[in-house]
Design a protein around this nucleic acid. Structure first.
Lengths: 338, 338
DNA sequence: GCTGGCACTCCGACGCGCCGAGTGCCAGGC
DNA sequence: GCCTGGCACTCGGCGCGTCGGAGTGCCAGC
């Protein structure tokens, strides 16, 4: 177990390094943080911290920089979440309040997060996973061709074509529309399959094929749309990464274009609490020099999606965590209101 | 007017510079391109080309690199559009054929373009400007709250809420839905306003307010959606830009996040022919070291949107133009089929 | 008008020495 | 036992001068 002072030294190292981007030495530390001991003592502490793997030297006779493990300890034990200033809060609120629809909310959230944290922001669209059905609409486009429109309580609309095995009359259509809606409106996606299972049986024999097709398409849409979409922004902030650009930045940009990777990134932790994944803790190898701060957000107590930022491991964790948490809260409010 | 040989020299310089990324000298030129003259002669030609502003020296006693003006001449007079190889064509077709809906078509197109050109790809969603209405649907969500759903022939669906000034019965709703559709289905957006203008008059006095609200929302949606959306990809290719990274790449990334800028970029030229905008020809100052190759695409003869790529001025213009044109054609075909 | 020759320029790589920051270790003191 | 000041050592970065090579401009000659 590390003594109190050694932890203090680690904290100081992290803070200084995040600020200056340069390896920090024992003398500088004692000057900037009143630790109450001499540089020599700090050196001893540093040697211990290095043995334990919390800090490292880029080369002999250089200062120390935190390792992933060091950041981990810092985040877990040494740092809190820094609350935003009230002007910042007001700015968030003002900025998000102007949103006109769901797309706009997400777009604004991305911009906001990117600006606040000066990092790359990732916002997942509210998931349909826990969403409910607001309305299902059926339109006849051609004698044997229907369009199915699904409207969710989060305001999303999805449409699919359905090819009918047999022509389908307007009255049957109205009938199906009515019955379908009476069963599924207000229900969660996950519950829908069980609720419509027996629907074909109640139709005339000739219409059953079409009804089945419609239901199949509906269920398919529900499943497909559970694969969540997301939006990213602030990629220009990647330029503040470091010096050895191309080699670092390229894999990150590539990873950011892979929705699947990002979804994993946000989604891996189960609960809606804040997750911080540091450097090599990220499974994706293009992102081993980045950290991800993510948190769930939602309109009620339950999280419906996640949002977060991706930045260099050398980031201001307390500040970033504060911003991410605050934005998530406000977005939740906005969603609850609308 | 420049002699034939001088143009040939310019062409050789552009080609070599694009290939090597290094200033090209007179000797190297004569070695790699059988110009039939000696380096000394080439030097004289180069001096002339430099006087005319087509090429420049990074510093005294260095080779020459093309200027924007040089690239312009190259593109206009010296280079054709390089057709794709047939494996490439097949790859395009295979890749695009798998698309399941409009979003998917656009997403795949972006990926494809980025891969083929190894540059940043930008694809505008098919514009609603020249689109026609496929269907308008009205749903009653609450006694005094309707949802308006607009479906276009390009497969896009837009929805809006409408607050009614007065409760609106189901029969009135069905009536309005039917009349609205009979008037606007198959019509172009631009024609819709004139076609529905007198609709409120044919309704009962008490319903007119609601009908007007619905119409207003519909027209608003048509206008709003004319503001086109777009998708970009391949930003990782920016890392192949040059050496002086942050300074070049940052403004580009910033510009790429501004939809407005990009729309302007694609949209500036009127016709659907291919546009090449080189370096400072781009209005946006963050993009003065990039070139944009864009072309219209559409399902018929008329272009419904644009797509293109953004890359360093030092790009393989013939190849890029070939790829952009080919992709635009195939996307057009795909859209026409669906 | 093209060519070969020549003197000149300038960048970039290389080698060298110096400086300073930082370390590890050790002996002494509280 | 832990902290401290002192000391020798290490190593990267910087400035400087040198050198080579690539490239140029110019000129006289064909």
């Amino acid at each position: 177990m590390l003594s109190e002072r050694r932890l203090e030294v680690l904290r100081a190292i992290v803070q200084d390094y995040v600020g200056t981007e340069e390896p920090v030495g024992s003398k500088a530390l004692t000057e900037r943080h009143s630790l109450g001991v001499s540089p020599a003592t700090v050196r001893n502490d540093m040697a211990v911290l290095e043995d334990e793997g919390f800090i490292a030297q880029p080369h002999t006779s250089a200062g120390r920089i935190p390792t992933d493990k060091g950041y981990r300890l810092f985040v877990d034990k040494l740092a809190g979440v820094k609350p935003l200033s009230s002007p910042e809060r007001r700015a968030i609120q003002n900025f998000l309040d102007g949103a006109v629809d769901l797309d706009d909310v997400v777009a604004r959230t991305v911009r906001l997060l990117a600006q606040l944290t000066r990092q790359v922001a990732v916002v997942q669209y509210p998931s349909l996973n826990r969403s409910t059905v607001r309305h299902v609409e059926l339109l006849s486009l051609a004698p044997a061709r229907l369009m199915l429109v699904l409207i969710t309580d989060t305001g999303r609309v999805e449409q699919r074509m359905v090819d009918c095995p047999a022509p389908f009359g307007e009255t049957s259509l109205a009938d199906l529309r009515a019955r379908l809606n009476s069963r599924v409106v207000g229900r969660r996606f996950a519950d829908v399959p069980g609720l419509v299972q027996d629907l074909p049986e109640s139709f005339e024999l000739e219409d059953r094929g079409t009804v089945s097709s419609v239901l199949a398409t509906l269920l398919e849409t529900l499943v497909e749309e559970t694969e969540e979409r997301l939006m990213i922004g602030g990629t220009a902030n990647l330029t503040r990464f470091g010096n050895d650009f191309p080699v670092i930045i390229r894999p990150v940009l590539e990873a950011l274009e892979e929705q699947v990777v990002l979804l994993k990134l946000l989604g891996e932790s189960k609960d809606s609490g804040m997750t911080v994944r540091i450097g090599h803790e990220n499974a994706h190898e293009g992102l081993t020099s980045t950290s991800v701060v993510a948190v769930g957000y939602g309109s009620g107590d339950e999280a419906v999606a996640k949002l977060g930022v991706v930045g260099p491991t050398r980031m201001d964790y307390p500040g970033t965590m504060g911003a991410v948490r605050a934005v998530a809260r406000y977005v939740g409010q906005i969603l609850a209101e609308s």
